[in-house]
Design a protein around this nucleic acid. Structure first.
Lengths: 244, 244
DNA sequence: TCAGGTGATTCACCAAGGTTAGTGTCGCAG
DNA sequence: CTGCGACACTAACCTTGGTGAATCACCTGA
């Protein structure tokens, strides 16, 4: 267990710091968000369901969660991953009803932050509000990139792209060591995120292993050659907007 | 030519009015955005390219445009349609570089609004800022729904869903009459938006016609039976957040 | 220790959808 | 009138990726 997964506000601080300079006082301001209760959810349970009217903002501390949408007949599409440091529901000020569900993929821990408390923090520091909006805009950019992936990239390119993206996002919150990172989700989750059947996802993983693009076992993913993987994925990191 | 396509701010006003009550003074405030130059773009030209750093906010008056992303080898995915009344770049306050391109699908007219001018309007009326943020959040919701469509819906369901969505969005800006609306884009555009080959898109359209779901000719789309089309598409309008 | 649940993997089969190539129509510029 | 470009549509072919079913390796709780 990497100690950083239990680091509270630390991943968020790193994440935002990747975009703009933050100082000690920013860190203290963010830390006041930690005063809410720490919540837990088991793997394979819902944190929020489509149609609900959320009243709290959730900040993921450890574990992986996802946004997903499902159809009446059971088909399900994961439309985004939440990694430690990510906010789930920054938009509760604007929209009343969730148009998607949020599910825990692994056991997760998260803070529940009251809108009022949140308001106090960002009112005092427009600086931080800006950083948080940036976080939301990046999420939208990721959505667009996923649409490009599912619509145009082949399954192999698509998976390669996802792995590179996860690598950069995890690195940004201190959860990648070298070219390896923890991939605590199942192949079924990867299939649901990529619009592939489980069988074909597995085939594609085997192919990536054969090609030496990745090693994957015991929930650890190791990237063989990052530049080659990026080339295969046609990866352009501009959509992550990691510029200061 | 429907007169409404030359209605300036009117489509936007209708759009936002669908979400919250707006009065005459709101209309006047929005009208000041019209003072900028009216720009034109030909069909099949780019309005903005990925990588650029936009400095104006664009408000579409007439014609259809799209957000798209492309890959180095030429594959292209349309990730969203802009209809009259839509804003293209509300996020220029946050992100410096475009991670996608904006292209005119038909001949279009749009206002270019200076950020400063925009700022003045919303500073005076937080009410309107809220409405505009709602517009952005709905765009994000549409993105997620498209991801569900491309990932899980069959081509026929996907197209059915898109047509219902376009119907509701066009109705919201007064551009649908009865169950018909102008669909001024090519089948190639529809294919690029749905992650399908042109050939298969055409096959699917034929099937929809055979089933009596739609009539389509001369760039006019008529929905045969809206409820049936929604059922086929498994359409749930919650993601458009048309609630006051 | 054993049963049941979860997850990874593989096989055989086949349908959905992509590719290539072609036809026909319309509108327009020369 | 002619040639060209954009667009809609179709046919033949074949690859990609989905389906259904089975096996195996773990892990956990009774």
């Amino acid at each position: 267990m990497p100690t950083l997964t239990s680091a509270g506000i630390e991943p968020l601080f790193r994440l935002l710091g990747r975009y703009m300079m933050l100082d000690e006082s920013d860190r203290r301001a963010l830390s006041t968000l930690e005063t809410g209760p720490v919540c837990h959810a088991e793997a394979r349970t819902d944190i929020a369901r489509e149609g609900e009217n959320p009243t709290v903002i959730r900040l993921l501390i450890s574990g992986w969660a996802c946004r997903y949408k499902d159809l009446p007949d059971g088909r399900r599409q994961i439309v985004g991953f939440f990694l430690p440091g990510d906010f789930c529901d920054l938009n509760i000020y604007i929209l009343s009803e969730l148009d998607h569900s949020i599910g825990a993929l692994t056991a997760v821990r998260y803070f529940e932050i009251q809108p009022q408390q949140f308001q106090e923090v960002v009112d005092q520091r427009p600086h931080l509000l800006r950083a948080l909006l940036w976080h939301e805009m990046v999420s939208a950019g990721i959505q667009r990139e996923w649409l490009l992936s599912i619509g145009q990239r082949s399954p192999l390119e698509r998976l390669a792209h996802l792995f590179v993206e996860l690598y950069y996002r995890l690195k940004a919150v201190g959860l990648a060591t070298g070219l390896s990172f923890d991939l605590p989700i199942t192949q079924n989750h990867l299939a649901e995120a990529n619009g592939l059947s489980l069988v074909h996802l597995n085939r594609t993983l085997q192919e990536m292993r054969r090609e030496g693009l990745i090693e994957l076992s015991d929930r650890q993913l190791r990237i063989g050659d990052l530049e080659r993987l990026k080339r295969v994925a046609m990866f352009n990191n501009n959509y992550l907007h990691f510029n200061r």
